[in-house]
Simulated assay, not measured.
Amino acid sequence: MKTETLIFAVLFVFLLVTGAIYAVLTHFAEFGGGIPLVLVAGLALMIATYLWLTGRRVGSRPEDRPHAHIYEGAGEQGFFSPWSWWPVFLGAACAVTFLALAIAFWILPIGAAFGAIGLIGWVFEYSRGDYSH
């Protein structure tokens, strides 16, 4: 994960410098440019830190070695629920929540409730019923 870590670290530095330059050039009068750039730089730093820590824990992958073969990356990549409808439900909850931000705030609790139900359903999907372990 060295390449991914480097990409997000460079993105962090670029956004931080760009945000600082933007804030100085606008004399700190415009809050719609410099502050969001610095905040997105913080997000890039969080992702870079996560990838760096995960790369130290997991070790070298075939993608990290320049002379690795394709067959080294074959096999199981993780578990993905093939027939789950909960991500669609969560997407609809996000749509309702953003609709509340655009139209009326009284819709926000409805979207939050749908989101909580969808998240709980997705997390505990395999804990009950026919597919429980």
Results as ranks from 00 to 15, higher is better:
55 G>P: 01
12 F>L: 05
21 I>G: 09
27 H>M: 14
6 L>Q: 10
42 G>K: 10
71 Y>E: 13
24 V>E: 03
41 A>G: 09
125 E>G: 05
100 A>N: 00
56 R>F: 00
54 T>Y: 08
9 A>I: 10
62 P>V: 01
59 G>I: 06
43 L>P: 01
56 R>H: 04
128 R>C: 00
103 I>G: 03
65 R>H: 02
130 D>C: 01
17 V>Y: 09
58 V>G: 09
108 L>H: 04
89 F>Q: 13
39 L>R: 11
115 G>T: 11
113 A>E: 09
120 I>E: 12
95 A>T: 13
26 T>R: 02
52 W>T: 05
4 E>D: 15
90 L>I: 14
1 M>W: 14
88 V>D: 06
29 A>H: 07
65 R>W: 07
36 P>C: 14
126 Y>P: 00
87 P>G: 10
78 G>H: 12
121 G>D: 08
45 L>R: 08
131 Y>H: 05
16 L>R: 08
67 H>G: 11
59 G>V: 03
35 I>N: 03
109 P>F: 10
100 A>I: 02
114 F>I: 07
19 G>E: 14
119 L>S: 08
99 L>V: 00
76 E>G: 13
42 G>N: 15
94 C>D: 05
72 E>T: 15
48 A>L: 02
52 W>R: 05
115 G>P: 01
118 G>S: 12
109 P>S: 09
119 L>H: 03
65 R>I: 01
58 V>R: 07
106 W>I: 11
92 A>I: 08
8 F>I: 03
85 W>C: 09
109 P>T: 13
55 G>R: 08
55 G>I: 01
47 I>C: 01
110 I>V: 06
125 E>D: 02
21 I>Q: 09
12 F>T: 12
31 F>D: 13
116 A>C: 07
47 I>P: 03
26 T>W: 01
100 A>V: 00
12 F>E: 08
3 T>P: 13
56 R>G: 01
65 R>V: 03
32 G>K: 07
99 L>G: 02
53 L>P: 02
33 G>T: 12
32 G>T: 11
4 E>I: 12
107 I>K: 01
48 A>G: 09
25 L>C: 04
14 F>L: 12
71 Y>Q: 10
18 T>P: 04
44 A>P: 00
46 M>Q: 15
52 W>C: 01
20 A>V: 14
100 A>R: 04
128 R>W: 05
38 V>G: 12
104 A>K: 03
112 A>R: 02
48 A>H: 05
92 A>D: 01
22 Y>G: 10
98 F>N: 06
3 T>G: 15
27 H>Y: 14
123 V>A: 07
83 W>I: 10
90 L>E: 15
103 I>E: 06
104 A>D: 03
20 A>W: 09
19 G>A: 13
74 A>C: 05
13 V>D: 05
66 P>N: 00
112 A>D: 07
73 G>K: 06
51 L>D: 09
4 E>F: 14
129 G>L: 00
65 R>A: 00
75 G>C: 04
55 G>N: 04
79 F>K: 15
98 F>E: 05
21 I>W: 02
112 A>S: 05
11 L>E: 10
62 P>H: 02
118 G>K: 15
119 L>Q: 10
104 A>F: 08
46 M>G: 12
83 W>K: 05
4 E>N: 15
28 F>L: 10
111 G>R: 03
21 I>M: 09
83 W>N: 10
78 G>W: 10
24 V>Y: 01
60 S>N: 04
106 W>V: 06
68 A>H: 15
7 I>W: 11
